[in-house]
Structure formats: C-alpha cells, structure tokens
Design a protein around this nucleic acid. Structure first.
Lengths: 263, 263
DNA sequence: CAGTGGTCTAGACCACATG
DNA sequence: ATGTGGTCTAGACCACTGG
C-alpha cells in the first residue's frame, strides 16, 4: 500500500532481526531530517500499521534507541527525537558542569549530597600518596538537568591541602569548596597543573553514593571518570570521580591538561 | 512452592517492572557468588518456572544484563556470567591493547584496516595545528578478542612528523608504525609528552571506518576516546581516536599523561 | 536428536497526560 | 474520554549447538 520501500521488509533478506531493521529505518529518518530533533515520532500503533510488524517489535526498536539516548520516551505523550546535545569539542580547558547543562537549555540544579572528613579507602589513599591514617574530606555532589540526575561527583581533598587555611568544620559546609579549582588555588594555594585518569563504563547499581539514595534505574549505564589532579610540583592534590548518567544526556566529557589553555 | 522469597514478586509492591525485579535477583546472585563467573545460568524456561513470569519477561531481564556486559548469551548453548574483565587501575602509563587483551586470557588478533596519506578533515587539522592543504597519514587498526571486534583505532600523523625520516610509501605499509610510541620517538624524533582528549559515548552506526565494513550491530554502544598527543615543546604531534566496543568487553581505559611513570 | 537461545505475534490490561 | 506509552502473557516457530 505504501509506495515507499519501507513496507514488507521481513520477507526479504532475513539477515537482521525485524526490530533492528525498524531501528535502522528510524535512524535513517532521523539523520536525513525526516524526523527533526525535538519532533514527535509517530505513535507505536501508527508504526505497527505502516511497517506491518507487531507492537512488540516496534517497541524493541524504540527501546534500543532510547537506551542509546537517540530518542526520549514520555509516558502518555509520545516518543521524541533527542536534541543533539553534544557540545563542541574543546579538548582542553576546565569545564563547569553547571555551564554545560544550562548551555544546553536545561534547567540545572546542583545539589550537595554529603560531606565527611575521614581516612579514605586504600585505593584512594594510594592515588593521593597518603600515608595510612591520613585524613581527607570527601564531598559528593549531584547535577540535575530538568530534575533528572545527569552527573554526580566525588571529590576527595587530603587534609594537608587545606589544613591551616580553613577549618575542617568550615570545609564540610555545603558549597564551601565552590568553585573547586578556585578554592584549591585561592584558599589552599594549590593550583592543579594536570590530571591523570581512567574511564570505564558501569551501571548505576555499582555506584555507591554517600548520602541520599539516587532515584535511578539500577541498570542505567554510567560513564565513570576517575582522575587525580597534580600540582606543579607533581604532587597529587585531589582525587575526583565523575559519574555521567549516560542515557539521560549525551555529551562530550572533557579531560583537562596542564597549564594554560591551548586554543 | 519455593521456600525462598524469590517467588511471587509481581503482586507485592508493583513499584518496578517485573523484568527489572528479575534482573535485580540475578545481579544479587551474581554478586553473592551463587552464580560464579563463567558459570551457566539456568535456562530461560527454568527461570520461567522458578519465578512464575513469562519467558518474554525473563528475556527482557537477560537482555538488559547482556547489554551491560554482565552476562554473555550463546545461541544454542546458554547464558553465562561474564568474567570480571576489569584490569587494575594504573591511572597512567601507556597501555598496549594487545597486552591488555591477552592479559585477560583472550586470543588477541590485531588487524591493519587501511592506510592513506591525504589532507585530514578540518576538525583534525585544527587539533593538529595544520595549515589548509597539509597532508597526514591516517591509519585504521582493529583489535579482536576471540575474533570479536573490541577496539578499533585511528591514528593521524602529520606529514611534517615523518618527512625526511621515512618515505610516505613506507609509512603506509601495514605495521610500519608499530609500536606507535616507539616509532614516533625512535624513527621521527618526536616523543609524546602528554595527551589531551575527550570521551563520549556513541553507537557503532556512527563510526565511519575507512576500510572493510565492521561486522557489528549498528546499535552497539561504543566508547569513543579522542586525543591529541603533544611533544615536549607543546606542539601537537599525533591525533588518535579509539573506539571501544562496550558490550563485548569491559575494562578500564587508560588516559596517559606526560613524562615518566608515576607509580 | 533434544535443548538452548532468537524472533515474532496477538491481545490484554495498566498508568499517565491532555483536553 | 481518548490516545499515548508501559507491562505482561501465552504460544508459535526458527536457528544454533552439542551429543
């Protein structure tokens, strides 16, 4: 009935699953501009009729796209093409998550989750070259875009960095270290010269935040960036872990460098 | 019938979808050691009986786990717990993908996909501080673990780096630049002092490899690491893009730094 | 061959958002 | 009230693997 070739696909070349074929068709239409960003896709039932497949198949395709953040589903409303929230690629320069999120047109809210002064676990101690028994401040923060968790971070600042400059009581106050780089440089006299780190994929279930429980799907994919910041004397000053909740937002993550901006 | 509490779950607290509850049960059993790594899970039909849910629900849970690499499905054989292929976290130091993969007990095969000398696209040219019209060599390589694509990389070496040291014809030969860091240092006199880069999630469909088509699911999640290596004079020497095919293997990705190894 | 996972369907009901 | 997506089922058939 439809003159387009999109019709009876399951009979020819059964090479790939129907759901994948449907996903591919939708991806084509997205990249070709037939379905522009922010626009609403046809409803599931409409696709069922157009493509002559079952609703389960359509849903499988849509789920795959939603898992990769290509598409955003809204219960009772419809399925929408995600905006291309990919910032240009500065490759260096320090980035401020607040700026990044609001720059994408989202309402950004950052939230202090917890602060504590204690001896960090061994792996962190080693990364920071701390002796056994050394204390540090651990600060958890969260960044929400339109009230959805997109990023949460852990900062670990060894006691030696702030001792004599600011009291432990004061540093534990929410927001006391904001913005972090300025705090380290101006209040502690410790500029960050360069970072060294690792990246890994994980799932939300394995993220153990100190503080209120995160209200996210345990299977949500998370990009974990772990890094140590060094001062110009090559002494480790700060340990950071950034958790980027992947299927909510899609954007480049910046790894910084040392010294001045390059471009 | 089953004395365990795992039975009728769908009637109590309908808070989360059945499939998620099933996934959670399986994750518990994995982390508790009930299902040790490498072991085979009960078949789908067995789970259907044990948990009193439909096969579609069981499969939804298993698909979610497989998408995150927690579990590996083998058609006609069964579903297996993935080995924890996560290397210890060196945080710096250059890493050799061959070593990494074989170190996990996989048979590693690296494959030269293509080489070409041409003017790189503008974004790459800018990253490398190249004037319009400047030439560079682009090299695509793939790393396979047990014949499955796990990593593919693009290296772009500007002509000025190798000119006068090695002919273009020679550098285009497969394997001519192996190992890369040694090649740059010994053959070109360009040691890499530090890297600057970005990370982003993507899907395989958006990866445009020059050379043979990749035989992977277009929706497969990919971790893209884009970086520029600088020499001690802070001049960009090499542009690299690494594509880590996420649901095949799971491991930390190392970002290097500058100068000597720290730990 | 038997058992496993892979695919697909039809149909039911629920939960949410909007008018 | 309507239409949307969210969940779940039962059952069918296919494709692969291994003994």
């Amino acid at each position: 009935m439809n003159p387009k070739a999109e019709d009876d696909l399951q009979l020819m070349r059964r090479q790939s699953p129907l759901a994948d074929q449907v996903a591919e068709i939708l991806l084509e239409r997205i990249s070709s501009g037939t379905y522009p960003p922010e626009s609403r896709l046809p409803s599931e039932n409409e696709m069922v009729e157009e493509l002559n497949v079952s609703r389960a198949t359509v849903r499988a395709a849509l789920s795959a796209l939603a898992a990769n953040g290509m598409v955003k589903r809204r219960h009772g409303v419809g399925t929408f093409i995600s905006r291309l929230t990919r910032i240009s690629n500065p490759l260096n320069d320090v980035i401020d998550y607040n700026d990044l999120i609001t720059g994408q047109g989202f309402a950004c809210r950052s939230e202090h989750l917890s602060s504590i002064a204690r001896e960090p676990e061994q792996a962190v101690r080693e990364a920071l070259d701390l002796k056994e028994g050394a204390s540090a401040v651990e600060i958890w923060k969260a960044f929400l875009a339109n009230d959805e968790m997109v990023i949460c971070t852990l900062n670990v600042i060894p006691a030696w960095v702030y001792e004599g400059r600011i009291t432990t009581e004061e540093i534990l106050r929410p927001g006391a270290t904001e913005p972090l780089y300025q705090f380290l440089e101006d209040r502690c006299g410790q500029a960050i010269d360069y970072y060294v780190g690792a990246v890994r994929p994980d799932i939300a279930r394995n993220i153990h935040v100190r503080g209120p429980a995160l209200n996210v799907n345990p299977l949500m994919p998370v990009l974990v960036i772990e890094e140590v910041g060094y001062n110009p004397e090559e002494k480790p000053v700060i340990y950071e872990v950034e958790h980027l909740f992947g299927d909510r937002m899609k954007f480049d993550v910046i790894r910084r460098h040392r010294r001045a901006a390059r471009r």
